[in-house]
Deep mutational scan, measured.
Amino acid sequence: MPSETPQAEVGPTGCPHRSGPHSAKGSLEKGSPEDKEAKEPLWIRPDAPSRCTWQLGRPASESPHHHTAPAKSPKILPDILKKIGDTPMVRINKIGKKFGLKCELLAKCEFFNAGGSVKDRISLRMIEDAERDGTLKPGDTIIEPTSGNTGIGLALAAAVRGYRCIIVMPEKMSSEKVDVLRALGAEIVRTPTNARFDSPESHVGVAWRLKNEIPNSHILDQYRNASNPLAHYDTTADEILQQCDGKLDMLVASVGTGGTITGIARKLKEKCPGCRIIGVDPEGSILAEPEELNQTEQTTYEVEGIGYDFIPTVLDRTVVDKWFKSNDEEAFTFARMLIAQEGLLCGGSAGSTVAVAVKAAQELQEGQRCVVILPDSVRNYMTKFLSDRWMLQKGFLKEEDLTEKKPWWWHLRVQELGLSAPLTVLPTITCGHTIEILREKGFDQAPVVDEAGVILGMVTLGNMLSSLLAGKVQPSDQVGKVIYKQFKQIRLTDTLGRLSHILEMDHFALVV
């Protein structure tokens, strides 16, 4: 994948999101292997301009796509893939009243899908469409860049269908997702969380590099694949309309690839034109409109599966009536509230959605109805927002919020430890010299600072030695090549209790 991002070429006709291997024109390309080798690009942008032909009021008969309808489940399912879809609609009884809503608040519980998330729908649909058009064949390999849930859905379907599955996901995604993927037989590649989507090191860039190296491999490409919004247009939206008897006044959905909100909203605009569509985008993402909503100094966020630093091709923002931004604290607070007060075992993005819903639905009156999409299960986040310690460490809970008995030293300040200034190293000294210094002084790690004293990161003896043994660096290389740029900081005025929580999850903390 090139470091400079080429513009994806656009073909003359058809839909841009065809499933299957992508040609340089962004659509299915038939021909000899030699032709494909000559024409197939190194990668295709996940934010390529959409060429979708959908228009409100256009006859369904003019759609270029294969459409399906929700099917009634048999008493005995032939395999677990038949437990994807037909998820329950559940009334939220307490939270709406707590925040003064007059309307009825309903939750579409997508964590009841077989793999635990709304992404099971698009995973199965992308595979079925690729099999139907002859792209996927027995023994082929599926590769997908994902925040985890699409990966789980694909790995689940691949396990049943017999495909090899490789999932490329950023490091910030939970260990629970990784464990589930491994249990399903998927191979996992992790990428830096802070890598831009168009960087060769991003999950998108690495996935395309693997595709170019592995024979008979395919990126189904949830960011561009029409099967993504079509899955929701054909099934999720129809289920909502049936469950609500066609009567709903507002739908609120958090947005990642945009397939969920695009597919549902398009069908609702056709069948229930008075329904307002509300999009939820986390602070630090750029999906919301108008652009002024996205202006923030924050560039990272903890909530998973929603928000991006690019506009995915499948996201149709014209069908969203209003956007709201959400933050991590309210997302996790509301997710825990949904679990504790409503018994809905949902993930953090569901918290984002409901946090926005109780604001947006203030305009609705008694007798009206708001539906929220709860995308995934708490299963993926047992060591994250479900953990009091994690919430404390991230600053989303305060010590006084917890009532468990603490040891005698818990409320003492870090400054009472009488710490001395640490050994520091410059980023320009060599790895070999740094190892000598650390061994001589008896230290395992040291902060790396520039000549102005600005902290650049941390270097550890173990990481340097393993990097040297693996051949990633040489003793003569500058130590700046092996620094940890993500590390926890703590102030002298913070409590030892807070430091204790940090050290339970990290090997060190830097006192500043």
Rank of each mutant, 00 (worst) to 15 (best):
P2Q: 12
P2H: 13
E4A: 11
P6C: 07
A8E: 10
E9I: 10
V10Y: 10
V10P: 08
P12D: 05
C15N: 02
P16A: 07
G20Q: 10
P21I: 04
H22F: 15
S23I: 12
K25S: 10
S27V: 14
S27T: 15
L28C: 09
E29A: 13
G31P: 09
S32A: 12
P33K: 04
P33C: 07
E34S: 04
A38E: 10
K39G: 04
P41T: 13
W43T: 07
I44K: 11
A48C: 13
S50Q: 08
W54P: 06
L56K: 11
G57A: 15
G57L: 03
R58A: 11
S61L: 08
E62A: 14
E62G: 11
S63N: 12
H65V: 02
H65F: 00
T68D: 11
T68A: 15
P70G: 11
P70V: 03
K72N: 11
K72T: 04
I76D: 07
L77Q: 11
P78V: 05
P78F: 06
K83I: 11
K83W: 08
I84H: 07
G85C: 06
G85H: 11
G85Q: 01
T87E: 04
P88Q: 05
V90H: 03
V90F: 01
N93E: 03
N93I: 06
K94A: 10
I95F: 13
G96A: 13
G96P: 09
G100M: 05
G100R: 05
C103M: 05
E104P: 02
E104N: 09
E104W: 01
A114H: 11
G115P: 07
G116W: 07
G116P: 07
G116A: 09
D120C: 05
R121A: 03
I122T: 05
S123T: 06
S123P: 07
S123N: 09
L124H: 11
R125T: 05
R125V: 02
I127D: 05
E128P: 08
E128C: 07
A130S: 11
R132Y: 02
R132P: 08
D133P: 10
T135M: 13
K137E: 07
G139W: 07
T141C: 12
S147V: 00
S147W: 00
G148V: 04
N149L: 01
T150V: 04
A159C: 01
R161H: 11
I166L: 13
I167G: 07
V168W: 00
P170M: 04
K172M: 05
S175D: 08
S175M: 01
E176P: 00
D179R: 05
A183Y: 04
A183R: 02
L184E: 02
G185D: 10
A186M: 04
V189R: 06
P192F: 06
T193E: 10
T193D: 10
A195M: 05
R196N: 12
E201S: 15
E201N: 05
S202V: 01
V204E: 09
A207D: 04
K211H: 04
N212H: 04
E213M: 12
E213R: 11
S217V: 00
Y223K: 00
R224V: 07
A226W: 07
A226T: 10
S227F: 10
N228K: 03
P229D: 06
P229V: 06
A231H: 11
A231L: 06
A231P: 08
H232V: 02
Y233P: 00
D234G: 08
T236H: 06
D238W: 09
E239M: 05
I240D: 00
L241S: 04
Q242Y: 12
Q243Y: 07
C244V: 13
C244W: 05
L248W: 01
V252W: 07
A253D: 09
G256Q: 01
G258E: 03
G259V: 01
G263C: 00
I264D: 01
I264H: 06
I264M: 14
A265T: 14
A265E: 07
A265F: 01
R266K: 14
R266F: 08
R266P: 03
K269W: 05
E270F: 09
E270R: 03
C272K: 01
